[in-house]
């Protein structure tokens, strides 16, 4: 098996597990907290292996849970996250253009939309992803930038938001 660099100390995984262990659905809470603790907000292979080993849960089951919930990221995430809603209401009000414009602005050339796209820039500054529905259909189209939901977004508005963050980051 490939050895991965040990980014997080073993005790912290252990303590997170012991905090939640025994409660119903503890694996979810364990994974949630570990992802939150991670610099790149993701669950590395090494972390998942430690969880399986220390919590006595089969590796395949840990993987099953981590891949079922869209909340969990198995790839390192960018510092800033842009989530474009691709639900029906947002779609009819132009969310596809929002997605394509942001992809272009962030430098993802040859971007092709797949279901649940998630892309991170090589400098790990931005992650662009889609979501099936935020449940904010009355405000369509909506885009979440670093957790803040922006409503009635136009490509122009969105580009300005992204450019602003890009400018701050390049300082």
């Amino acid at each position: 098996m490939k050895k991965m660099p040990n980014k997080v100390d073993v005790p912290s995984v252990k303590s997170v597990i012991s905090k939640h262990e025994g409660k119903a659905g503890s694996l979810l809470s364990i994974l949630e907290e570990l992802q939150e603790n991670d610099v790149h907000k993701h669950l590395s292979e090494e972390i998942l292996m430690q969880v399986a080993q220390k919590a006595g849960i089969p590796l395949s089951q840990v993987y099953s849970v981590a891949t079922f919930y869209s909340f969990f990221n198995l790839k390192p995430q960018g510092k800033h996250t842009i989530v474009v809603c691709r639900g029906t209401a947002c779609h009819t009000r132009g969310s596809r253009a929002l997605l394509l414009e942001s992809a272009a602005q962030l430098g993802f050339t040859d971007f092709v939309e797949e279901d649940e796209s998630a892309l991170t820039t090589p400098d790990r500054k931005f992650t662009l992803r889609t979501v099936a529905c935020f449940g904010q259909c009355a405000l369509a189209p909506v885009v979440a930038v670093d957790g803040t939901i922006h409503s009635h977004v136009t490509p122009g508005k969105l580009l300005k938001l992204i450019q602003k963050i890009q400018k701050e980051e390049s300082r």
Binding site: P58, L59, S60, Q61, Y63, S64, T67, F68, E116
Partner: peptide
């Protein structure tokens, strides 16, 4: 438990870790 259901929706598949 070498295998389990992985992914979700259209991407649901039987997979290993």
């Amino acid at each position: 438990s070498a295998i389990d259901v992985a992914g979700r929706g259209l991407r649901t598949h039987i997979g290993t870790f």
